[in-house]
């Protein structure tokens, strides 16, 4: 049996962190925030089929950035876990906290034990019966879990988006106002994927076809998750975004993975 080369634990974890962080930073961003009626998910995603935001259970939603196959598998696992639990006990016994902890466990274990860490960042959101009950959990590639009271920004260039949201976000926003805040935030980020030929400062206006929007609507009975698309979404967007509806350049992929697996490792 051959002995593996020695490398310090410190170095190993640093390398893995770097790989995961680079993989995630290529993707387009997702913003999750609370508003008066519940929780709002806004993702920059031109694909109509490969979603970044989805339903887990009655009051629980899921948003993710990073490698599609990885977070889609985590999403499916979460749905299974929630459904088995709700079926063996009761629908009320499925909580966002339980799910967020399970995700943190899975990601944390993979980070230290697997060949390659998950290149994903997740947000588990739960809508409460009142605004005080709303909960947003952010789970990062290494299994770190944080409970964020107002908004979560994940993905590529999160820094300008977070800065923007810190200025514009306030509790008690209506749906259209919250959507405007989120979209303005996403527009503050430079075009991701190294496609910054127009310069990072060129202002972007995101239209209906560039956004994936969903809510956990407190007022709905049972399944609160609802996607907002098409004309309904257009009417909710700020004035200047309504006119924009550019079809994506035909040759480019519109959703899914932005880069190949481990491409961060091969980059000089």
């Amino acid at each position: 049996m051959t002995m593996p080369f020695y490398s310090s634990v410190d170095q190993l974890l640093r390398d893995r962190s770097e790989l995961a962080r680079k993989g995630i930073s290529r993707g387009r961003s997702v913003v999750v925030l609370t508003y008066t009626g519940g929780v709002l998910f806004v993702a920059e995603n031109r694909s109509k089929a490969l979603h970044k935001v989805s339903e887990i259970y009655d009051r629980i939603g899921f948003a993710a950035v990073g490698r599609y196959n990885e977070f889609d598998n985590l999403r499916t696992g979460g749905i299974r876990m929630a459904d088995v639990r709700g079926y063996s006990y009761d629908r009320r016994d499925v909580s966002g906290q339980m799910l967020a902890k399970a995700y943190a466990q899975a990601l944390g274990t993979a980070f230290v034990e697997q060949q390659k860490p998950y290149e994903v960042e997740l947000c588990v959101a739960e809508v409460g019966t009142t605004a005080e009950g709303d909960q947003l959990y952010r789970i990062t590639y290494d299994g770190s879990i944080t409970d964020e009271p107002q908004f979560v920004v994940m993905g590529g260039t999160t820094e300008p988006i977070s800065t923007k949201l810190k200025d514009t976000y306030q509790p008690g926003l209506e749906l259209a106002e919250a959507l405007a805040v989120a979209v303005e935030g996403l527009e503050a980020a430079a075009t991701p994927g190294g496609n910054a030929t127009n310069g990072a400062t060129a202002s972007r206006v995101l239209g209906v076809s560039a956004l994936e929007v969903a809510v956990l609507d407190r007022a709905r009975p049972r399944r609160t998750f609802r996607r907002i698309t098409g004309p309904v979404l257009r009417d909710l967007l700020p004035e200047e975004n309504r006119a924009v509806d550019d079809p994506p350049p035909s040759a480019e992929p519109v959703g899914g993975d932005d880069t190949a697996a481990g491409s961060a490792a091969t980059e000089s």
């Binding site: 499916t76 088995v84 399970a102 899975a106």
Partner: peptide, 16 residues
């Protein structure tokens, strides 16, 4: 039923 998330993450059928 399985406890950790691992059992739920294994590739499987989409039927509950």
């Amino acid at each position: 039923p399985p406890t950790g998330l691992d059992a739920y993450l294994a590739p499987g059928p989409s039927s509950f």
